[in-house]
Structures are given as structure tokens and as C-alpha cells.
Amino acid sequence: MSVVRRDDTGAVPTIGGVAVPDLSAGLGAVVWVAAVAAGALGTVPRALALAPLVLVPLGVGMAGHGPFPGPAGRCLRAAVWCQPVGALLLTASLALDVVGPVAAALAAPWLLVTGLLGLAALARTAERGGVALPETAIDAGLAYVSVAAVALLLYHLDITFYFGPTIILLTAVHFHYAGFVLPVVTGLTGRSGHLDSPLWRSLVGVILAGPAIIAIGISFSPLIEVVAVGGFTVAVALFGWFVLLRIAPTRSRRQAVLLGASAVALPLSMALALGYGVATFSGLALGLDIATMVALHGSLNAFGFALLGLVGWRLEVP
């Protein structure tokens, strides 16, 4: 079994003709199922662990189908090789379910992986020198995921500032899904070549800025949170409509089913997020507490939108 290193076009490395990210995602899926079956992961850690074990390698592998020249390609390949170890250690840190230096040390390698992805995005942006929306969206996802790694490290170190530890942990979840998966899926959708309109470009802009603005609102202002979540919800709902009606019909039947199901799950999960933001700002009892949001919003995001969407695109990468 030989390792094949591709050239500086940015193609991901392979082992025995199979892309390393695909092998990592397959191994990660086995580890995730085993950990869940053994009861080693709680509800929030279960959703969080799915991202580095399965979703990030899938997304990074497909991102690597685009141009990653020079330093960007080298950073991407280094991240690909480090990702399986980082993901396994991160999962172990979540399984410990403790705060302290041991859990933090286990989570720290994921910061290296995401830092390499962020450097790849920065180098590629500088090399490109312009705004190509699909590639800009993918670069944003590669950059945002570093925030998730920092948040998880802070959680394990019990550095929560004026938030509770649950909010810090949910920030790590937020930037793996809304910060990484959504921009990468948006970029892959744009790469399919069927979308080019002022409305589409506006939606991409909101999707890329939304996770950061929502995080700012959660941190400092319920009003900003409600406005940001409202605009973000509209944008992702329209994005789902674009995928369902304009992208899915152009793809093969299996891919169309998965992309369509992912597109339907996305606005449903964001409607719940909007309801939670309104309830937080207004004080209305809408029955959307943290536990309910984790169960409903989290499941729709993790298994409905993210997993189905990334697996769907992996069937035929644009």
C-alpha cells in the first residue's frame, strides 16, 4: 500500500488510491458509533464529536478538489495528515467529561489541525487576490473552524468568562456546523456552476458573516442576536430553496435525494434558532430551552443538514 503525494494543485494525499480524508471519515464514523453505543458521549459532546471525526474530513477532502497552490496546498496536506489523530484525541477529551489539564491537552492537537486549515485559507485568499464566491465560502469555513477549537480548549480549561460552561461548549458546536459545514456546503453548491445572481451573492455574504455576528450577539446583545439570527434564518432558508429547486434536480437521483433532504432540514433548524432568540430577547415562554434546542435544532443540523449534505456532495464532487 503506497502513499501518493499530489502536486501543488492542492489535491489531497491518498493511501492505496483512496483519499486520506475519506479513510479518516470512515474510521471516524466507526469510532463515533462505538462511543455513542458505549454511552461515552453525552448529548452535546455527541454532536460535537461527529464534526471532527466525520464532517470535517469530508469537507476538507472535497475542498481539496479546488485549487490549493503553493503554501496553501502544503498547509492543507499537513492538516489532512494530522486530522485523524486530532479528532480521536478530541473525542477522548469529550469522553472524559472533566475540566482540567488532561482534557485540555487531549483537545489541544485539534487547535493545530484547525490552525493549519486557517493558514491554508489565508494563503489561498492571498494567492487568489480576488473574490470568487465559491472559493471564498470554502476558505471562510476553513478559517471559522479554528474558533471552535479555541472554544473547546477554553471549556476544558474552565475559562468561561461571564458565560456558563454550556455556552462555551455550544460555541464549539456552533463554529463546527454554522462556521465550517455551512460555508463549505455553500462553496460546493456554488462550484456546481448553476447559480449566479445578485440574490445568490447576497445570500452567500449573509451566510459567511452570520456565524460571527450571531456569536457577537450572544456575547453582548440579545437585540443583535435576534436581528442576526433573523437575517441568517432568512438567508439559509433561501439557500435551502435554491438547493432544493435549482441544484438537486440537476444531480443524479441518489445525490438529489440527499441534497434535497439536507436542504429541507436547514431552514427547519434555523427557524428553531430564531424562536430561541426571540424567546431570549422577549422573555416569552416558547418551550425552547437549551435542552430542547440541543435535541431538536442540534439533531436537525448535525444529522439532517450537515451529514446528509456532505455525504450527498461526496457522491459527485463539483
Results as ranks from 00 to 15, higher is better:
G277A: 12
R253V: 15
T160G: 11
V234S: 05
L244W: 12
M293N: 11
I216N: 01
Q255E: 15
V20D: 09
M62R: 06
G240V: 09
A49N: 03
A237N: 07
A34C: 11
E135A: 12
L300F: 14
G129R: 04
L272N: 02
G179N: 01
E127P: 00
A256T: 05
L153N: 07
A215C: 02
V20R: 04
Q255R: 09
V236W: 04
G205E: 06
P222T: 11
V184H: 02
F305W: 11
V131I: 15
G309R: 00
P71Y: 05
L296E: 13
F220W: 15
V3R: 10
L310T: 09
A228F: 02
G205Y: 07
V12D: 08
A271T: 14
L96Q: 13
L50E: 01
V56K: 03
V206E: 08
V278W: 05
T91H: 04
Y276M: 15
Y144M: 09
G100N: 10
G304D: 12
R6W: 14
S192F: 13
G141A: 09
H194A: 15
T114C: 15
F163I: 04
G287M: 03
A121Y: 07
A95S: 13
L122M: 11
I224A: 09
T43F: 10
T91I: 03
A261T: 13
L119T: 06
L157M: 11
A295S: 15
V131K: 02
G59P: 06
S2N: 14
V150T: 07
V20Y: 06
T250G: 05
G70H: 12
H297D: 05
V317P: 05
P67E: 13
I214L: 12
G129K: 06
V99W: 12
L244T: 02
W313R: 02
S197R: 15
A209T: 11
E135P: 00
L288K: 00
L55H: 04
G130P: 08
